[in-house]
């Protein structure tokens, strides 16, 4: 009875349980075919990881990623301490909510257009900061502040952050 490729891969990755690894090791000592297969699998793993190295090198996260995570956490803590609802917790979520507010005030077609123009100018920074002047121009300061509070509050419930915090 020979070992299958999955077991051999797990064995060479050190991922078999202790008894299973012991059984595999004993089998490999006495079975040339499986020993060769195990060697082939080990070599294939090396080739695959080498092929992957360039991808790893090229595909790096933005340098300020940790800062962004920390400011997200701080924002959440501030909101939680104020006893409010969940603040804008993710950028994607935030953009969705901005979209909903824009649609409410401008209708879906104009909103889609505005969204393209406004947040894409500073996509990585602060989508609220990008959309605020636009809302202010169209709605006036007070209504814009209310819309932004609504976005930060998750589109429902009472506002959790002062408009100037956005």
């Amino acid at each position: 009875m020979h070992l299958d490729a999955g077991t051999l891969a797990a064995y060479s990755d050190g991922e078999l349980s202790e008894p299973a690894a012991g059984r595999a090791a004993r089998h490999l000592k006495s079975c040339r075919r499986c020993a060769e297969e195990a060697e082939r699998i080990r070599a294939e793993r090396e080739v695959a990881l080498a092929a992957d190295a360039l991808f790893r090198l090229q595909c790096v996260p933005p340098q300020d990623g940790l800062e962004r995570v920390r400011s997200c956490i701080q924002e959440w803590l501030r909101s939680a301490a104020a006893g409010g609802a969940m603040p804008a917790s993710s950028a994607a979520d935030l953009r969705r909510r901005i979209g909903a507010q824009l649609e409410l005030y401008f209708g879906s077609e104009t909103a889609a257009l505005l969204e393209k123009v406004a947040p894409s100018r500073r996509p990585a920074d602060d989508p609220i900061a990008a959309v605020e002047p636009l809302l202010t121009a169209f709605l006036g300061r007070k209504a814009a502040a209310a819309a932004i509070r609504q976005i930060m509050a998750g589109g429902a419930g009472r506002p959790t952050l002062a408009p100037d915090a956005a």
Binding site: P61, S90, A91
Partner: peptide, 28 residues
């Protein structure tokens, strides 16, 4: 973070979506 980001890029084929997801995961 780097590994999560690469995994995100492979899944979404989109840097921004990957980074958003990584950020959200750490917040959660």
């Amino acid at each position: 973070a780097a590994g999560l980001f690469r995994y995100g890029v492979v899944l979404a084929r989109n840097r921004e979506a990957a980074q958003d997801a990584v950020q959200e995961a750490f917040l959660r």
